[in-house]
């Protein structure tokens, strides 16, 4: 299983195995990682699973879709590699990927 390194805002790192095919959001939720809220459970409506993909992996994760990009555009904490974690499906190529979480999801 690919290992994803989730890094909370305060620097706390969680290296966890996430099954291929599930989302980066669900991977964080299943591993009880603070800093992920996911109010809507992964429907791309609430913007509370915001994360920043380490630039080394943005090619693998691809870019945000229209609705996702629109939601991200509203966030004060948006960075160039911001994504909504519920819209990123984990693949084998993401093994070792670093994903940072923002200070707050609100």
């Amino acid at each position: 299983m690919p290992v994803i390194n989730y890094v909370e805002f305060d620097g706390t790192e969680h290296s966890v195995e996430v099954a291929e095919g599930i989302t980066l959001m669900q991977g964080a939720m299943d591993n009880l990682i603070d800093g992920m809220v996911a109010e809507c459970g992964g429907c791309c409506v609430c913007c509370t699973c915001h994360c920043m993909i380490d630039p080394r992996w943005t090619e693998v994760t691809g870019t945000a879709g229209t609705q996702e990009a629109e939601l991200l555009g509203y966030l004060d904490t948006k960075e160039p590699t911001s994504r909504l974690a519920c819209q990123v499906n984990v693949t084998a190529a993401m093994d070792g990927m670093v994903v940072r979480l923002p200070e707050s999801q609100y």
């Binding site: 599930i22 299943d30 591993n31 009880l32 809507c40 459970g41």
Partner: peptide, 24 residues
């Protein structure tokens, strides 16, 4: 929520409906 939406329309599987993985 997906029960009347993606799950009923067959676009997501049982495992994707789980709130958390069993290990959690």
């Amino acid at each position: 929520p997906p029960l009347s939406k993606a799950y009923l329309a067959n676009t997501i599987a049982d495992e994707q409906l789980a709130l958390r993985a069993p290990a959690a």
